[in-house]
Amino acid sequence: MYAFNYHKPASLEEAAELMANADDGAYLSGGMTLIPTLKQRLASPSDVIDLSGIEGLSGLSLDGNRLHVGAMTRHADVAASTAIPALADLAGRIGDAHVRNRGTLGGSIANSDPAADYPAAVAALDATVHTNKRSIAGGEFFTGLFETALAEGEIVKSVDFCVPDSAAYEKFPNPASRYAVVGVMVARCADAVCVGVTGAGACAFRATALEEALSADFTPGATDGVAIDDGDFNADLHASAEYRAHLVAVLTKRAVARLI
């Protein structure tokens, strides 16, 4: 690791101020991505601003049909929650037990790793991301590979998700890293069917062709023959774009099968 100044502010305002004054600051939430990056000297922030000392950023609360999850809520705590079983299931499959004991929702989505799990839920569950400055619709939050709609210095405070009538998350883990090669969350809210996909593209997205097919006929077979364009899909040692597209279809089908 390169040298940096470590700060643990007590408020969002203090955190934002530290960031504004830093030559090249970085927020630290759970650290599950940032710390390995620092260890390998792949990043060299002048200041690391730990958000864990700020009150009120963690915990889950239910408000009507919206589940409010604080940005610093650990994956393990979401995994143990009951309001949205599919979200708990998703959180329980992130990384490993140690990652889930440290990693947070806010840290995960702010990083917009194409292979992270949470973005599938943000896409599928009509999420709204609340920051220290504004609210961002889930569908507009992820903008590209490791890119989000967050402005410089903006801090995620919480995310709220719609509590669906039913939902299921299917994940095909990378055999080495256990990140998602592809992850698909299928959710039914009132009459709408949402299919959130992570792992396949540069960032999470909704698979609208699959949603249309499933809206018409919510059966596993309904997705057969739906073309999934893999033109922009990721390809690496473990999975080609074509295989990822195939997995999107298979996982969607399996998620639907669990819901009927």
Binding site: N174, P175, A176, S177, D236, L237, H238
Partner: peptide
């Protein structure tokens, strides 16, 4: 699988890519 690309860079150079 220990995999090099055509230029001799090790692609499976960590536990992120080498499947233990």
């Amino acid at each position: 699988h220990g995999v090099y690309d055509d230029t001799g860079q090790l692609l499976s150079g960590s536990y992120m890519d080498y499947t233990m």
